[in-house]
Design a protein around this nucleic acid. Structure first.
Lengths: 113, 113
DNA sequence: ACACAATATTGCCAAGTAGTAATATTTTAA
DNA sequence: TTAAAATATTACTACTTGGCAATATTGTGT
């Protein structure tokens, strides 16, 4: 369905993947999957510094993955692209398969399902 | 379906996304979508240096995304995880939607489909 | 106006890495 | 054993960026 992408499109795709290529940002997305959270809540939940949480949320927001909403003194972020969870599921599936293959190579004959 | 991932799992997922976060590697995957290719073929097809193509193919192979097969003097690489194209499709879809939104914000009332 | 709390920003450093030129390795063919 | 071709590796440079401390900004209540 999709033709061949030019260099600029490939760079855009790569940039998006790059946003997801950091454990801290993935942890933030995972926490936000349960619902909107304020910066300080996320910082405590992840055990991370406020400055860094704010910075990484900014990266995710700039990429269009998060929505930002002021609520008095707080700023609540929420997931704006549920697509990211499909992405993560695909990757997790591959990692699970890899791990299984590695296991069965050491311990033959495993139960199927 | 998937529970909460620990730090190590998040790092593994991030590492995978990181492999896809480079335009050159995406271009290689795109070229390989049409079928197996030798290193020199890919270098010419992309207009890139042999050393860099070999290096990036190595990264993709180490990540388990490509298969490697010697064929005489050549080494042919091929896609080992078709999942990556689903990933790219999801990302491309988001980018298309973003671009459309940006367009319709400037030029109201566009034709549907 | 003030103090206080939550968030954002700035300057910095250390680590990681894409790309390159040069060189090494592997394979084929004489 | 040679030479030549294809691929991989090494050493290097330039650039990017995650995390941090300090500071600035924004909003709330008094």
């Amino acid at each position: 369905m999709a033709g061949v992408l030019d260099r600029a499109s490939l760079e855009a795709v790569a940039r998006l993947f790059g946003v997801l290529a950091e454990p801290t940002r993935l942890a933030l997305l995972q926490a936000l999957k349960a619902g909107p959270r304020a910066v300080s809540e996320l910082a405590e939940e992840l055990g991370a510094k406020q400055a860094n949480v704010s910075k990484q949320l900014g990266v995710l927001h700039a990429a269009g993955l998060l929505a930002r909403a002021r609520d008095g003194n707080l700023v609540r972020y929420s997931v704006a692209e549920s697509m990211i969870f499909e992405l993560c599921e695909l990757v997790c599936g591959k990692l699970r398969r890899d791990a299984e293959r590695q296991l069965s190579a050491l311990a033959p004959a495993k139960k199927r399902k």
